[in-house]
């Protein structure tokens, strides 16, 4: 496809992108799991950057309590399917982008089938169970994972590349959280989710362009203290996923 020189003018002038990089972005296939507080900004920035094929996986409907952080939706969208509304908005936002939707719950069974069509999966879900599932399925399908998560004023971000044999999400949290913890509902602030979701789009874009990304590392963001800490994560010898 001919690159729209006007639309992407301000990023084509970035040395690390240029026409060649823009073509790479257009050829890339990125799947976003979860079109909520993280997935919304991630999807918008991926579409804005001109990622040619975007998949989005979310089976939820929009609820009023989503609107403090899920900026893809507005009051009139309440009770509508997230995947459907998100696709409509993203395609209007950038007609160059083809959006495929999966409005089903991600399971061990369907994950590999969906993942095989993509180069990168963005883990933007809202629970640990799905995060472990995405991590495992992405390693089976050998696709890169950009994982982001938030809780109150904190956020984490990491990239795992199965093809390069990096450490994974399960190396960061080898012991799963207790049911006592996962049954609790923690608060989420839109601006924190927006920060981490935007960074997820950025990591995906850099990975596609072949630039530095957060492999074998986790970034820990503290929105109260205004601190970012980057910690090395080595592969655990006993990790059942990235071993």
């Amino acid at each position: 496809m001919q690159i729209d020189l006007e639309r992407y003018k301000r990023q084509l002038s970035i040395k690390a992108i240029g026409k060649h990089g823009q073509q790479k972005l257009f050829n890339a296939k990125v799947l976003v799991c979860g079109a909520g507080g993280l997935g919304g900004p991630a999807l918008i920035y991926l579409a804005a950057a001109g990622i040619g094929s975007i998949g989005l996986c979310d089976f939820d409907v929009i609820e009023q309590s989503n609107l403090n952080r899920q900026i893809l939706y507005n009051h009139a969208d309440i009770r509508k399917q997230k995947a459907y509304i998100a696709k409509e908005k993203l395609e209007k936002f950038n007609p160059d982008v083809k959006v495929e939707t999966y409005s089903e719950k991600l399971t061990e069974e369907n994950a590999s089938d969906i993942f095989k069509n993509y180069d990168v999966v963005i883990d933007a879900v809202d629970n640990f169970q799905s995060r472990y599932l995405i991590n495992a399925a992405a390693y089976r399908s050998s696709i890169t994972i950009v994982c982001g998560a938030v809780c109150e004023f904190e956020g984490i971000l990491t990239v795992a590349v199965p093809k390069e044999n990096t450490s994974c999400f399960q190396c960061i949290y080898p012991i799963k959280p207790s049911s006592e913890l996962t049954s609790k509902t923690f608060g989420i602030l839109g601006a924190i989710a927006g920060t981490i979701g935007s960074m997820q789009a950025l990591e995906a874009i850099k990975f596609i362009l072949g630039l530095h990304c957060l492999k074998n590392k986790v970034l820990i963001f503290n929105g109260i203290e205004n601190t970012y800490r980057i910690r090395s994560i080595s592969k655990r010898k006993d990790c059942p996923i990235c071993k």
Binding site: G34, G36, G37, V125, E154
Partner: peptide
């Protein structure tokens, strides 16, 4: 450090400790 060992493991001179909150929301 497993939950059941947290009273047994002792922080001593020169040790390193990493504490990471379970952050999983979105």
């Amino acid at each position: 450090v497993n939950q059941e060992n947290i009273t047994k493991v002792i922080l001593e001179e020169g040790d390193t400790l990493e504490i990471l909150r379970f952050v999983g929301g979105g």
